[in-house]
Design a protein around this nucleic acid. Sequence first.
RNA 1: GGGGAGAUACCAAAGCGGCCAACUGGGGCAGACUGUAAAUCUGCUGUCUCUGACUUCGUAGGUUCGAAUCCUGCUCUCCCCA
Length: 426
Amino acid sequence: MNFIEELKWRGLFHQEIPGTEDLLNKGEVVKGYIGFDPTAPSLGIGNMVQIIILKHFQRAGHQPIAVLGGATGMVGDPSGKSDERNLQSLDQLEINKKNVEAQLRHFLDFGAEKNPAILVDNYDFYKDMNVLTFLRDVGKHLTVNYMMAKDSVKSRMETGISYTEFSYQLLQAYDFVQLYKQHNCMLQMGGSDQWGNLISGVELIRRMEGGEVYAVTSPLVTKTDGTKFGKTEKGNVFLSADMTSPYSFYQFWLNVSDEDAEKFIKIFTFLDRPTIEALIEEHRQDPGRRVLQKRLAEEVTVMVHSQEDLETAIKASSILFGKGTKETLQSLPLRDLLSVFEGVPQFNIDKAQLTDSISVIDFLTDVTGVFASKSDVRRAIKGNALSINSEKITNDTETISAADLINDSLVWVQNGKKNNYLVLVG
RNA sequence: GGGGAGAUACCAAAGCGGCCAACUGGGGCAGACUGUAAAUCUGCUGUCUCUGACUUCGUAGGUUCGAAUCCUGCUCUCCCCA
């Protein structure tokens, strides 16, 4: 199966410039690139789609170039944005760049013999360039009329677009020119929202260099319920363990709906077609077992984090959602307990505050602040929703004391099935 | 500038002197069922010293035994005419 066919059955193909497939099937190693702007301290799972496409590209025997948007990140892509964005500070950009670069290195194979991945920072294309040079040598080749016809710009004509963001497509186009000249890069890939920018690059190469290059886009990943992919109530799902704990990351995939699971397992894992089709079949037989979600969550967590992180995440899930009794909690060493509860909101109190036994209501409000009001606590107790150390609180006169601490240092509070809090006593 | 309508809890929207902490819908939270899903059903959704008390219906006063409800000033919003 060739690269384009692979993308197609996985649902990763949107459109191409005619001739792209022929180029890739010649049996030669083709260089293709995708750009990643360092707009956040970490890539999110939306960006992961593009990384995965680069990996498929590499697996198909071609040579992937990951372009770090050191320059484009300074300007800001108007694509898909209804308002002008604030520029990021240069310091922040520097931090973002370091992180994004590390993440790209984590996924792509830079040691491959025949087709090692290449990392390029597009800042290098511009750092020694004069504005006037840019205007004379680059800007002269595309008309404003042409640039304004792009959706990304056109949709902003009402609300306004700065000259800076307007110039973005010219920068991205010139990236392609440089990659074409320096690396003989023949293909640019990206999300479907990037189509306009990719075409600008193709056009610019035709005019400046007389070269014929190609472009492929992938569809926007969507969810069946219409909500935005890659976000939870708590915000974006990031690839960095510091920003989205491996546990939350694992949970995100585990909670995917049945229809989405069939779609996502094709997009986000490298399992081959027979394996995936067998899994889907198995899942349809007995959706309750959620084999798809589990496998998806496992594969992606290992790929992004590690086998070890996956095991911790599974263990955490079984304690948080399973029948973890107080005894099993007591049996775990403190270090593991803390990692199980990583990402769970934590409250710190002083041990002196627990010398006498105090009522659960006071403990959860005045002492720790887990709940905003005492009425809230009473409601939770009435609704049979509140547990402390996995034991249901059924009466609002119950008390808590130092003897109830797990490992002599913490209290686990649950409100309902999904809201966990940890009180650290030190 | 003249005339009219309105301002109620997270949102929408009833209530128009005591039965109002305030109908109903949405949202949110929880419970049941389930698969840590969807759908469905149920409860909750001002605070507290919680079978009761206290503070809330734009804002400041007033009438009344009693006001979200009536009166007055103020602020803001909308509509019509100029």
